[in-house]
């Protein structure tokens, strides 16, 4: 399918309710290598949008363009637009630091800082100038509760984050992200390094977070996309192939490529 047709497809539908985040004709280059080609997609508020596709299709690149984290480590070029509440993320007047506070990110591998559990969660708020102990205590508790960690860890929040299990570490990273009060949470294959039990817990957490945040989750696990998301987008070779309600997508995909992918004929 051609890129222009995909545009039309996306537009012809009724726009998703309360689009929080949106990309239009987004292309992304690492040096000379093009990772994304004219992708247009909307992310409704208080919904989980799953992005699926085979390895190297550009799905991680896509969400890394939303909080502009890609440009921190690589030499990148971006064309097209990413809009947060209708405001261009790559615009001249945007404050990248504030953007990243509003658009949080959970990474593929749990990456807690080698600090205490408390200091991990308090790290973000402290960056943004919160020094009051009581306020920090409240934020830490609230964030850990949202990540379903508080009851497990409340007695050892001064202990090292590195002593936690992989699943706990990843939920700690979620708590750390929530502590700066973001509006959007991006998750880049958050369970790929975890066992099934830990994965189930993260998925439960995602389900409860949906009530407050706009969530975009990249996954190459089809079952996971089916379980946690409201909408699913299928990316293939840097282009958006199809996007729909998850239930529709997994039962009646319109595109042959999508069907082949979700039925496991390639991937």
């Amino acid at each position: 399918m051609k890129e222009s047709e995909l545009h039309l497809l996306e537009k012809s539908r009724s726009p998703a309710p309360g689009a929080k985040l949106e990309c239009r004709g987004l292309s992304y280059f690492y040096g000379a290598h093009q990772a994304l080609n004219g992708v247009s997609l909307t992310f409704p508020d208080r919904q989980v949008t799953a992005i699926i596709g085979p390895s190297g299709c550009g799905k991680s690149t896509m969400i890394k363009s939303f909080n502009r984290i890609g440009e921190v480590v690589s030499d990148v070029t971006v064309t097209g637009e990413v809009l947060l509440d209708g405001e261009s993320v790559y615009g001249k007047e945007i404050d990248v630091v504030e953007l990243r506070r509003r658009v949080g990110m959970v990474f593929q591998r749990p990456n807690p800082f080698p600090k205490s559990i408390y200091d991990n969660v308090a790290f973000g708020p402290r960056l943004h100038g919160i020094t009051d102990r009581r306020q920090l205590d409240e934020i830490v508790e609230e964030s850990l509760r949202q990540a379903a960690l508080w009851d497990e860890l409340k007695d050892r929040i001064r202990g090292s984050a590195l002593d936690l299990s992989g699943g706990q570490q990843q939920r700690l990273c979620i708590a750390r992200t929530l502590a700066v009060d973001p509006e959007v949470v991006l998750m880049d294959e958050p369970c790929s390094a975890l066992d099934p039990v830990a994965t189930a817990k993260i998925e439960d957490t995602i389900a409860s977070l949906k009530q407050r945040y706009c969530i975009a989750i990249v996954t190459h696990n089809m079952q996971q996309a089916a379980r946690v998301s409201d909408r699913t987008a299928f990316i293939y070779q840097g282009e958006l192939v199809e996007v729909d309600e998850t239930a529709v997508m997994f039962t009646k995909p319109r595109n042959k490529l999508t069907e082949d992918y979700i039925t496991g004929r390639f991937g």
């Binding site: 630091v97 953007l99 990243r100 990456n111 402290r126 960056l127 750390r176 992200t177």
Partner: peptide
């Protein structure tokens, strides 16, 4: 210092100096 730790700090809205000083 692992890149993933720097990334995590940037993703929380840290400035370059805050990443250096805090992580």
């Amino acid at each position: 210092v692992p890149l993933s730790h720097r990334e995590a700090a940037y993703a929380l809205g840290a400035t370059r100096w805050q990443v250096i000083q805090g992580v």
